[in-house]
Computed example of a mutant assay.
Amino acid sequence: MKYRKKPVLVEAYQTKDPIDIETLEGTMHASPGDYIITGVNGEKYPCKPDIFEKTYEPIR
């Protein structure tokens, strides 16, 4: 079976500095240029720019 990700609105920003983020899986490191995403339940996690651009598109 194949599945498609449901359209979900998330907030995200691109970090300029290296930071550590507390996620549901523990502490994760974000490098400059990574996106920090706030998920549907308020959880935060980093995402590499190439994956972010393949997965998300801006809304207007």
Rank of each mutant, 00 (worst) to 15 (best):
Asp20Val: 04
Pro46His: 11
Arg60His: 02
Pro7Cys: 09
Lys48Pro: 12
Gly39Ile: 00
Ala12Thr: 13
Asp17His: 14
Lys2Phe: 06
Glu43Trp: 04
Ile36Pro: 01
Asp34Cys: 01
Arg4Met: 13
Ser31Ile: 03
Lys16Gly: 10
Cys47Lys: 10
Pro58Gln: 13
Lys54Pro: 03
Gly39Cys: 02
Thr15Gln: 05
Ile37His: 01
Lys16Gln: 08
Ile21Phe: 04
Val8Cys: 12
Leu9Phe: 08
Lys6Gln: 11
Pro32Cys: 00
Ile51Glu: 15
Lys2Ala: 05
Pro32Val: 01
Thr23Gly: 08
Ile37Lys: 02
Pro58Lys: 15
Pro58Gly: 11
Arg4Glu: 14
Gly42Lys: 09
Gln14Cys: 11
Glu11Val: 11
Ser31Arg: 03
Lys48Phe: 10
Ile59His: 13
Thr15Phe: 05
Gly26Ser: 05
Gln14Met: 13
Thr23Tyr: 07
Val10Asn: 03
Asp17Asn: 15
Glu43Gly: 11
Leu9Ser: 08
Lys44Val: 08
Lys2Leu: 07
Gly42Glu: 07
Glu57Pro: 11
Lys6Met: 08
Asp17Arg: 15
Ile36Tyr: 01
Ile59Ala: 14
Lys48Trp: 12
Pro18Arg: 08
Pro18Ile: 04
Tyr35Ala: 02
Gly33Gln: 01
Glu43His: 09
Ile19Glu: 03
Tyr3Gly: 04
Ile21Glu: 02
Lys6Thr: 10
Gln14Glu: 14
Ile37Pro: 02
Glu57Arg: 15
Gly26Val: 03
Ile36Asp: 00
Thr15Ile: 09
Gly33Leu: 00
His29Glu: 09
Tyr13Asp: 07
Lys5Gly: 10
Thr55Leu: 15
Ala12Met: 11
Asn41Thr: 12
Glu43Ile: 05
Pro58Ser: 15
Gly26Asn: 05
Met28Ile: 07
Thr38Val: 07
Phe52Glu: 12
Asp17Ala: 14
Glu43Gln: 12
Lys6Pro: 09
Asp50Val: 09
Met28Val: 08
Ile19Val: 04
Glu43Lys: 08
Thr55Ile: 14
Gly33Asp: 00
Ala30Val: 00
Lys5Trp: 14
Thr23Ala: 06
Leu24Phe: 12
Glu25Trp: 10
Val10Trp: 03
Thr27Asn: 05
Val40Cys: 06
Gly39Leu: 02
Val8Asn: 10
Thr27Trp: 05
Gly42Met: 07
Phe52Gln: 14
Leu24Arg: 15
Gly39Asn: 04
Asp17Lys: 15
Pro46Val: 09
Lys2Arg: 05
Glu43Val: 06
Thr23Asn: 06
Glu43Ser: 13
Asp20Leu: 04
Arg4His: 14
Asp34His: 02
Lys48Arg: 12
Lys48Thr: 10
Pro7Arg: 12
Lys2His: 05
Ile19Ser: 00
Lys54Asn: 12
Glu22Ser: 08
Tyr13Val: 03
Lys48Asp: 13
Arg4Gln: 14
Glu25His: 11
Arg60Asp: 02
Glu11Ala: 13
Ala30Asp: 00
Val8Pro: 09
Tyr3Pro: 01
Met1Glu: 02
Leu9His: 09
Tyr56Met: 06
Cys47Phe: 09
Lys2Thr: 07
Asp34Arg: 01
Arg4Ile: 15
Asn41Ser: 11
Ile37Asp: 01
Met28Phe: 09
Gly39Phe: 02
